[in-house]
Amino acid sequence: MAQVDPIIVMESVCKFFGSLRALNNVSMSVQSGEKVVIIGPSGSGKSTLLRTINRLEEIDSGRIIVNGFDLHDRRNDINKIRMEVGMVFQSFNLFPHKTVLQNLTLAPMKLKKLSRGEAESVAQELLEKVGIQDKAAAYPSQLSGGQQQRVAIARALAMNPKIMLFDEPTSALDPEMIGEVLDVMVNLAREGMTMVVVTHEMGFAREVADRVVFMDIGEILEEAPPGQFFQECSHPRAQRFLSQIL
């Protein structure tokens, strides 16, 4: 079956925090293999939008379909859907009581019932891919921020997901460590992973994104390929945002 249908579809999604409208009638879709970068000022709802895609954030109305499954259909097992959707957090959220290797093998062993040997060989491969194979036995607290985030990416990849979500993956890092994490993400993009990335790294957006989505006050105000977006974006708020950060 050819992937003609988009892998993520959001239809008129609304989300409130109390009386604050975090997402206002947002509709968006992502094709399989597409890289979408979401940008916008803080408080614009971009992280909230990302977190609704694996239902870490519940929505108040609308519909979200991931991988063909409606997230809010009670018949669908949200845990099964989440196994196909990797997520990387701003604050890494590695399991501090587990070694790097155990961080990577925990979910595959418990959820996919891989044997320890299988899970560890997958984990070793992934650690090599993110360039920290020599830290397999270390604990997260012994790693730098950049290394921790690369482990977090590898941990998400260990479940062999179809989609990867990145929630400001470099915002908590010291400047000199941002590059190593972005490199891993660029490589991942080249391999054809479907990626939705919330970030302030405009260089990354330019290089990798198929589409840049600009959000403010809970709405998508502009959507365009990066070349077009950065050169001739028309929305005044997007222009103002770009002039502030570029």
Binding site: N79, R82, M83, F89, N93, F95, L111, A156
Partner: peptide, 20 residues
């Protein structure tokens, strides 16, 4: 964040408690 990380990997609530 620990709960979120575990849930996003596909652990259910009980597994998240038990393993993480």
């Amino acid at each position: 964040g620990q709960t979120e990380a575990a849930r996003s990997l596909g652990f259910n609530q009980a597994q998240t408690m038990r393993y993480v």
